[in-house]
Amino acid sequence: MTGAQAGAGVVAPVAAVRAAAGPRTAAGVSAERSAPGAVGTAAGAATATAPGPSGPRPSRTGGDDAPRPSAAEIYLEVRRSPAFQEVRRRYRRFVGPATVLFLTWYLGYVVAATTAPGLMARPVVGPVNVAMVACLGQFLTTFVLTWAYARHARVHRDRAALELRWETQQMTREAGVDR
């Protein structure tokens, strides 16, 4: 599934939130936002305004007095979306097995160091023994796992997550939600 396909699951929540946000002008801006401090909307319904940092702000109701979604409602809607679920599934499919593998390797090293000192003291090359090689392997594994996680995120999740973030920010802006 491509990032665009994963992001397509956000369209339904976006449409639902946009519908609840009230009437829109040709430019795509909600009617009460098109003229700050305006008393009416494109539908002719009056809206109350509240002063904001850059002048009066429209109330959180749409042109038909339908309440606009809150930030919590928007984020919950995005969280329920198939695109978000796909990003989380891809994350869990990498992190779960990687965590189990690394913890098994680490605990194996600790158990071997405490229960088999003769094995760990066995020389490999000159003064370097099995314990030193295993310890360096722990460090190497950490770096390899970090690289693999970053690559997996870049290849499999970043684009879809960025599209979700963009859609969520757009939804909150359109709903007039302050952060």
Score class of each variant (00 low, 15 high):
Ala46Asn: 12
Pro58Ser: 06
Gly55Asp: 05
Tyr106Pro: 10
Ala72Cys: 03
Pro69Thr: 10
Gly63Cys: 10
Pro117Thr: 02
Pro127His: 12
Pro53Leu: 11
Ser81Gln: 01
Val29His: 01
Val125His: 06
Ala83Leu: 15
Ala27Tyr: 05
Ala98Gln: 07
Arg80Ala: 12
Gly37Lys: 06
Arg79Trp: 13
Gly96Met: 11
Glu73Gln: 14
Leu107Asn: 03
Asp65Gly: 11
Val95Phe: 15
Tyr75Pro: 02
Gly52Gln: 03
Arg89Pro: 00
Ala42Ser: 03
Arg93Tyr: 13
Pro117Met: 01
Phe84Tyr: 00
Met120Lys: 04
Thr47Leu: 06
Asn129Tyr: 05
Ala31Pro: 13
Tyr109Ile: 07
Gly63Ala: 12
Phe94His: 11
Ser59Phe: 05
Ala26Ser: 15
Thr41Ala: 13
Ala48His: 07
Ala83Arg: 13
Ala113Arg: 03
Pro82Gln: 00
Pro53Cys: 10
Val110Glu: 11
Thr115Val: 14
Tyr91Val: 03
Ala134Ile: 00
Ala113Gln: 04
Val128Met: 09
Ser81Val: 13
Ile74Phe: 09
Val130Lys: 02
Arg68Cys: 01
Ala66Phe: 09
Pro51Trp: 09
Val39Thr: 01
Tyr109Pro: 10
Val111Tyr: 05
Val110Cys: 07
Glu86Ala: 15
Cys135Tyr: 06
Ala72Arg: 04
Gly108Cys: 06
Val124Phe: 09
Arg57Thr: 01
Asp64Val: 02
Val100Tyr: 04
Gly40Arg: 02
Arg93Ile: 05
Thr25Ile: 11
Tyr91Glu: 04
Arg24Pro: 01
Ala116Gly: 12
Arg92Ile: 10
Arg57Phe: 00
Arg89Gln: 07
Arg33Asn: 02
Gly40Tyr: 07
Gly96Ala: 11
Val128Ala: 04
Ser30Asp: 01
Val29Thr: 09
Thr25Val: 04
Val100Asn: 06
Ala48Arg: 01
Thr49Leu: 06
Pro56Gln: 00
Gly137Cys: 02
Gly37Thr: 08
Arg68Ser: 03
Gly44Val: 01
Val110Gly: 01
Tyr75Ala: 15
Ala43Asp: 03
Glu32Gln: 15
Phe84Asp: 05
Ala46Trp: 11
Ala116Ser: 14
Phe84Gln: 01
Arg122Glu: 10
Ala45Asn: 08
Tyr91His: 06
Ala26Phe: 12
Pro123Cys: 14
Thr115Trp: 14
Leu107Thr: 15
Arg24Ser: 02
Ala43Gly: 09
Arg33Ala: 15
Gly37Asn: 09
Pro127Leu: 15
Ala83Tyr: 08
